[in-house]
Design a protein around this nucleic acid. Structure first.
Lengths: 224, 224
DNA sequence: GTCTATACCACGATAGAC
DNA sequence: GTCTATCGTGGTATAGAC
């Protein structure tokens, strides 16, 4: 923040973003990152303290503008609805589209960052928890409230489950761009960002509006 | 297959399943696995060739019975429907429920294996690809066809996208059982397997039935 | 065939000189 | 701020014991 005298720090962030994106947290080697950044191995520990902190710094740098964009879209959706509840499709798109579009914005991390973020899911749990509780906390709270307003008849517990499912669907698109090609025998490609948005938003909107469990299994829920 | 004479191999698989489940592929150390299995470090490379092959062997051992169960449920759903297309909810439940219920079946891997499988998503891409093309190939083809029959009006490309999203939702439930508690402020728990099924199946069914790209201005009249 | 001992090189981290 | 040296631990490879 205060000492941009040397840009070693920035070069490390850029190199780390690429490396983590390509190989994941464990797969990327600090020696490779520092070599590409033309910095010494120990520079990482001087500037960031550890590999995990470096990773979090990479995420934090990109996620703050992204979150501002999401919240701005949510504000717009709520303004458009006036006193009424915002449209469900608009809320979902505000959450989902900025992340997917980021994949095409090389100046702000591009595909590398987006894939890196998707990977967060399965990286050491401590990392994900720190991000959900830190830079993502406000987004989580605002969108949780907006979805509850858009779906007033929905039980809050049910809503939490559905948000959980929706995050999974979003992350899956983000992580591996070749898996869809396997599933469609090469017909579809996740490279098509606007296509992904056009498919994902109606999918999730319909899912959020699903009627709650009409049928069985409820009978033997002897739990608690 | 042919030499169950020594059970070193089986002990290694059991220890590896626990370790990979707890710490992920990179996080688990072979030295820890071999110590717990009371085997020598080099035994892993004798029996499996590498850490990655050991991981794949752990997955293969559990996934084959699981797949048989899924296909049996799918057969039942198709038999129930007779000449008509199977019910969408039944197809989805046949795909999803055996995996989630496995978390309660300690004799067949239990929660450890299920979490390990969920982690596959973000493990090195080569691993996931080998599993989708190997032990999961038949399940993928059969369910893909069943979904296409249950949703005859749906474009095949659209169906591939939706399967991609659905897999993400499923895997997300499986991997991290604490994330839902964070999202619901401790109200909901993914430990409740039947609850997860009861929430996930209608969610996905509604999503698969979504109309393709409703215009953004479509408020809430889109309910079926 | 089955398993062991051991050596190798790459990794993240740290201390201390400059 | 930067660099070198070094430590402990990781996956891997192989020679050889039973």
């Amino acid at each position: 923040m205060t000492t941009p005298s040397t840009d070693t720090r920035a070069r490390l962030l850029d190199a780390a973003e690429r490396a983590f994106s390509d190989k994941g947290f464990d797969g990327a080697a600090l020696r490779e990152i520092t070599t590409e950044a033309k910095a010494n191995l120990a520079a990482v520990h001087y500037h960031f303290g550890s590999k995990e902190e470096l990773f979090l710094a990479v995420v934090a740098r990109r996620i703050e503008p992204l979150n501002r964009e999401r919240l701005a879209l949510l504000d717009a959706a709520e303004a458009k609805a006036g006193a009424r509840a915002p449209a469900l499709e608009d809320v979902i798109e505000a959450l989902v589209a900025p992340m997917l579009r980021l994949a095409r914005d090389e100046a702000r991390g591009g595909a590398a960052f987006v894939r890196l973020f998707g990977r967060l899911q399965n990286e050491p749990e401590a990392i994900w928890r720190r991000i959900l509780g830190g830079p993502l906390a406000e987004v989580r709270a605002r969108f949780s409230a907006a979805l509850a307003r858009a779906l007033p008849e929905l039980d809050r517990g049910e809503l939490a489950w559905r948000m959980h499912f929706a995050i999974g669907a979003l992350c899956n698109v983000i992580v591996d761009r070749q898996r869809l090609e396997l599933l469609s025998d090469g017909q579809q490609s996740s490279e098509d960002v606007e296509g992904a948005i056009a498919h994902l938003v109606p999918f999730l909107a319909a899912a959020f509006r699903a009627r709650t469990r009409p049928s069985p299994a409820q009978t033997r829920s002897a739990r608690r």
